[in-house]
């Protein structure tokens, strides 16, 4: 039951890919061969650009999921940040305005962490209440309508600028994924997060400061949400109460498609990478093939469930005998 079973170096020292990695590769090959204009460099860059916001936000969600929680308020707090930024930029200038927006998002994540860690709230309820609260607050501030920003070059840089030939959002997404990987796998704090998420009783018994780990886990996750919110605001150049209402759902879906088991204590940056890549490629191919959006949604739903079914080794599907192996059927028996 260790998370290292999913990705581990085999005896030869080769890195074994997650199943979702193979799915992503197959999709890449299939789409490149059969979908016209898919493999063009411009299009691939476009996919990476579109996926980067989701990837950064999903890094935050990944941390919460590792802690065994759920975070539903990220879409609402990103919307609040966009409105705050549009309101403050004329007064304070672009860097300070964006910093205020980021602080708002991180502050909200901190409050969520306080609810969950110190008031024993279920994260579902805490973030759900926060989501509804923030949606109302943002609409009240903005009067229910989108607020246009002055699209200066500075304001748009975060979404459209380039660093070393890479689009800035893509670079930030790569950095976020690396950061999350180092945090989860190579830092004491990350290992504590795994411990708290997989077995809280054991964590308490081992003397882990469980509440503090949860509080700071939520806050760090808020940092990733803040980055995603800033890029989004710069992209749409406006403050919108209804900016990304489904961001929470999409990020959870990305982690699940990437092969993550959501019951806490297991998580890897590759889950986010592959999950987001699969979603982005499918969305892009559907647009290129001119599929209507309902069909796209239907496909996405099927893929979420299908990929989770295929990757849940301990699910009953394997035990029932569809793909049963000796090891898994043993695990199934012991769970009864």
């Amino acid at each position: 039951m260790t998370e290292h079973r999913e990705i581990r170096r085999s005896k030869q020292g080769r890195l074994r890919l997650l199943p979702a990695g193979y799915v992503a590769l197959v999709l890449l090959v299939v789409f490149s061969l059969w979908v016209p204009r898919f493999a063009a460099v411009g299009n691939l860059e476009n996919i990476a650009k579109n996926a980067s916001v989701l990837a950064i936000a999903a890094c935050g969600q990944l941390l919460i999921l590792v802690l065994g929680g759920l975070e539903f308020s990220i879409g609402a707090s990103a919307a609040l940040a966009s409105v705050v930024i549009v309101l403050t930029v004329p007064e304070l200038g672009v860097p300070a305005g964006f910093a205020v927006g980021a602080l708002v998002v991180i502050g909200i994540a901190f409050i969520n962490g306080v609810w969950v860690a110190y008031f024993n709230l279920t994260s579902l309820i805490a973030t759900l209440g926060m989501m509804i609260f923030l949606t109302g607050l943002t609409s009240a501030i903005a009067g229910g309508l989108p607020m246009e920003a002055v699209p200066t070059k500075e304001f748009l840089w975060l979404a459209r600028g380039e660093v070393l030939g890479l689009p800035a959002p893509v670079l930030l997404a790569i950095l976020s994924l690396l950061l999350v990987h180092v945090l989860l796998k190579h830092s004491t704090f990350g290992r504590l997060m795994h411990l708290v998420g997989s077995n809280r009783t054991a964590a308490i018994a081992a003397g882990t400061p469980v509440r503090r780990v949860m509080l700071w886990g939520f806050t760090i996750a808020g940092g990733f949400t803040a980055l995603a919110a800033l890029i989004l605001t710069s992209k749409v150049a406006s403050g919108q109460p209804n900016l990304v209402p489904n961001l929470a759902y999409e990020t959870i879906a990305a982690c699940a498609i990437g092969g993550m088991q959501l019951n806490g204590g297991k998580g890897h940056a590759c889950h986010v990478l592959f999950g987001v890549a699969i979603i982005a490629m499918i969305n892009n191919a559907a647009v290129l093939l001119n599929l209507p959006s309902p069909v796209q949604q239907l496909m996405l739903g099927t893929i979420i469930i299908g990929s989770v079914l295929a990757q849940t080794k301990n699910s009953n599907l394997w035990g029932v005998g569809f793909f049963s192996t000796k090891k898994v059927s043993h695990a199934h028996q012991s769970s009864q």
Binding site: S293, P294, Q297, V308
Partner: peptide, 23 residues
């Protein structure tokens, strides 16, 4: 029956059914 986490399973069905409702 299949033991998928309720978040993922119901989220997948939610997205799929929204597509069905529009179709």
């Amino acid at each position: 029956m299949l033991g998928i986490q309720p978040v993922v399973a119901t989220l997948g069905v939610l997205i799929g059914l929204r597509g069905v409702a529009f179709l």
